[in-house]
Nucleic acid binder design. Structure first.
Length: 726
RNA sequence: GGGCGAUUAGCUCAGUUGGUAGAGCGCAACAUUGACGUUGUUGAUGUCACAGGUUCGAAUCCUGUAUCGCCCACCA
């Protein structure tokens, strides 16, 4: 027996060495497995692509959960004989990375993006991101993830860039991508549009003003945003509101803070009769709802606020002021003129930009959109919305836990056209060129058009555009590569439920549209890793824990087990070091089980064809096979939290506490045949528990495997047979 | 306002088709120099939120109530 067993298991000494051994073997790459005869060439494929982490920073505990589950699946299927591929990668994360970089730039060098040329700024952000990327690649190795590094991808590398441009062009040519002057969420702080999904609402106190535009105006209205009222073109009331019937359809001219407004009284059922005076001042250019009303009633749309949230209209005092300042000026003017009727405090949900924290200003702008409601001839006249529903409805893609299917459909119901252009620098630039810098002639293509007078669109694409292509752009699309044919649709995807809409939905949209198949067969959503008391990890709370700290203290195997056991899919998990510690003890328990079995069977070799078991031992063999069949089924049914817990109890409560204890007695008192039978049984059991634990605790199991003088790697051993008799 | 969940031991949570309540941690007592003290044995603690219903039988299925949480939309 190896002397190593005389001291407790030390993950720190082991894990790095083991990972290097695996990586060197090349077996993370399914092609090598086939080449070396480990995997049958015609074996079914099992494929996954890693949800690419953002290169904004480093991996956190949430990522370790993701990796634990995914690597478990990959190792399980590799051992089951599948042609198994797990593609690694990272996400450039456009706005998130740029915002993070700009924040540092401002605090460290007191500079902004405007101090650099576009090219300079891009390469600075890129360099920052690539540093993080390098860190994360090492972190993934630390987690033991058996990723095929030879296929590593990045959402902004050259191959993915071609995929993005190809995708954009195809959607453009089919009229699914259009440019439109529409109201969008403008972030005045970040100076870019953002999607609906990038908005976070914050509850704040606000003043609700009730006032009249002028003395002669018949209806009082209420608003929190007085400054926008210089852009009003209508007052809307509910069609059934008896108070205002006589005014509907009439137009009034008023002088309001230096602007001559023509206010039409319209009836619209979106107006809430109960709120304020029951009448709503319609500001088409600066409110989503008002814009829609203006469309319905063909109202003029006047922009009165600019991209820096400053006033474009109003009297001399108002024009050029910030919106918040203008609001107070107008309140004062109204009070002076006796037009201000009421001022009250209310709670209001303010839209803020997730990344910059700026207050979102709805503005009409020329942007690029993806039409989700347009029938697509090449797809049987289905719309993108319908394509997103299709694979779920047809059970070609299973979302687990299944209550998230309802959430998914509910989201699609409310989906609007997707604004994909961003006014930031870090990202995929929109592959559209304008002749002579005007819109009169435009060109969309993979390469720039011939001639000098073409200027490329300065906007970049929403980061989710490139990540939407991820399952197939990583496999070589738009080329029809062997990988694409072999591994797509992918088998399994394991993202956090937080990105069901952002990402999962977009991947389904893109894959269904471009390939006519779903991106994956099963998507298992996991929850958020929170701190011990259930709070979200955040910088402001300073409750963050580095995965490295935990790994240094307890080992990767222990961390992985703690992430999997008892963690029900879709529900959040509170991270408690006590639990990690318990699995560190478990790794050591396993270590000592191996030590006992090896020391008490010295001189006996494991014989897989051994038949002369005693009746007792044969029963144990049968029970063990039944147990393995059971947990295999649990894993195949995505019940990892149950499978891992059962294995834990089998190893500790059954093998260690019962079987080993009984064995001591047999070795002391039994006859020769019984002793030999028991020794064979113990070796049989050791092999089995190492194998079934390997997907969950890869390092300690591989280390023991190596110390038992195997020539092979446990990594590519076959999962124990459960049907066929050994 | 729309949607989705949760409520089980002191704490954190499991409980797959309905069949006498489970784990980890914690707690108590005892044991032990030979696989492991990162141990073993034994033990205590639950009206499974509440109220009805279905059933021979409900933590589990149905209805309602309460409390908590999350997502989406959003009050001008």
């Amino acid at each position: 027996m190896n002397e190593k067993f005389l001291s407790p298991y030390n993950p720190g000494d082991t894990e790095k060495r083991i990972y290097e051994m695996w990586e060197k073997s090349g077996f993370f790459n399914p092609d090598v497995c086939v080449e070396k005869g480990i995997t049958d060439e015609n074996a079914p494929a099992f494929s996954m692509v890693l949800p690419p982490p953002n290169i904004t920073g480093r991996l956190h505990l949430g990522h370790t959960l993701e990796h634990s589950i995914q690597d478990m699946m990959v190792r399980f299927h590799r051992m089951k004989g599948f042609k198994t591929l797990w593609v690694p990668g990272t996400d450039h994360a456009a706005i998130a990375t740029q915002a993070r970089f700009e924040k540092d730039l401002l605090s460290k060098e007191k500079k902004s993006r405007h101090d650099f040329s576009r090219e300079e700024f891009f390469s600075m952000v890129h360099a920052f991101g690539l540093e993080n990327q390098k860190d994360m690649q090492q972190q993934m190795r630390l987690l033991g993830s058996s990723l095929d590094w030879s296929r590593e991808a990045f959402t902004l590398d050259e191959k993915r860039s071609i995929a993005v441009k190809t995708a954009f062009k195809q959607m453009f040519d089919e009229g699914l991508i259009y440019r439109g002057h529409r109201i969008v969420n403008w972030d005045p702080k970040g100076q870019t549009t953002i999607s609906d999904d990038e908005i976070v609402y914050e509850e704040r106190k606000a003043k609700l003003y009730t006032f009249k535009y002028s003395k002669d105006f018949p209806i009082a209205i209420s608003t929190t945003r007085l400054e926008t009222k210089v852009g009003d073109t209508a007052v809307a009331v509910h069609p059934d509101d008896t108070r205002y019937q006589e005014f509907i359809g009439k137009t009034f001219d008023v002088d309001f803070c230096g602007e001559k407004l023509h206010i039409k009284i319209i009836a619209d059922k979106d107006v809430d009769m109960e709120f304020g005076t029951g009448a709503l001042g319609v500001t088409p250019s600066h409110s989503m709802i008002d814009w829609e009303m203006a469309e319905r009633h063909s109202l003029p749309k006047i922009q009165v606020i600019d991209e820096r949230a400053k006033m474009l209209a109003g009297n001399d005092e108002i024009k050029g002021k910030k919106t918040t300042e203008a609001r107070e000026i107008i309140a004062r003017i109204l009070a002076e003129q006796g037009l201000l009727i009421k001022e009250e405090e209310i709670n209001q949900n303010v839209s803020t930009a997730e990344r910059s924290g700026g207050i979102v200003e709805p503005l009409p702008k020329l942007q690029w959109f993806i039409n989700v409601n347009k029938p697509i001839p090449s797809r049987g006249n289905k719309t993108l919305k319908e394509l997103m529903r299709a694979p779920i409805e047809a059970n070609e893609t299973i979302i687990l836990p299944d209550n998230f299917q309802k959430v998914y459909f509910n989201w699609i119901e409310n989906l609007h056209d997707w604004c994909v252009s961003r006014q930031i620098i870090y990202g995929h630039r929109i592959p559209v060129w304008y002749k002579n810098g005007t819109d009169s002639k435009i060109y969309c293509g993979i390469e720039a058009p011939q001639g000098d007078d073409w200027a490329q669109d300065t906007d970049t694409l929403d980061t989710w555009f490139s990540s939407g292509l991820w399952t197939f752009s990583t496999l070589g699309w738009p080329e029809k590569t062997k990988d694409l044919l072999t591994y797509h649709p992918t088998s399994f995807m394991d993202p956090a439920y937080e990105i069901l809409f952002f990402w999962v939905a977009r991947m389904i949209m893109m894959s269904e549209y471009f390939l006519g198949v779903p991106p994956f067969k099963t998507v298992l959503l996991h929850g958020i890793v929170r701190d011990k008391t259930g709070k979200k990890f955040s910088k402001s709370l300073k409750n963050g824990i580095e995965p490295e700290e935990i790994i240094a203290q307890y080992g990767t195997d222990a961390l992985r087990m703690s992430m999997v056991v008892g963690n029900t899919p879709g529900s959040d998990i509170n991270f408690d070091q006590q639990k990690v510690k318990a699995y560190k003890n478990f790794a050591n328990k396993l270590w000592n089980i191996a030590r006992f079995i090896l020391s008490s069977t010295e001189g006996v070799n494991f014989d897989s064809s051994f038949k002369d078991f005693t009746e007792t031992d044969q029963k144990l063999v049968d029970e063990e096979k039944a147990f393995i069949a059971e947990i295999t089924k649990e894993i195949e049914g995505f019940k990892f939290h149950i499978a891992s817990e059962k294995i834990y109890h089998f190893v500790w409560d059954t093998v260690a506490d019962v079987i080993l204890e009984e064995s001591k007695k047999i070795f002391a008192e039994g006859d020769e045949a019984a002793i030999l039978s028991r020794k064979q049984y113990l070796l049989f059991t050791l092999e089995n528990i190492l194998k079934i634990l390997h997907p969950f605790m890869p390092f300690v199991t591989e280390e023991i495997w190596q110390l038992t003088e195997h020539e092979t790697l446990l990594l590519v051993e076959k999962w124990p047979h459960t049907e066929a008799q050994k």
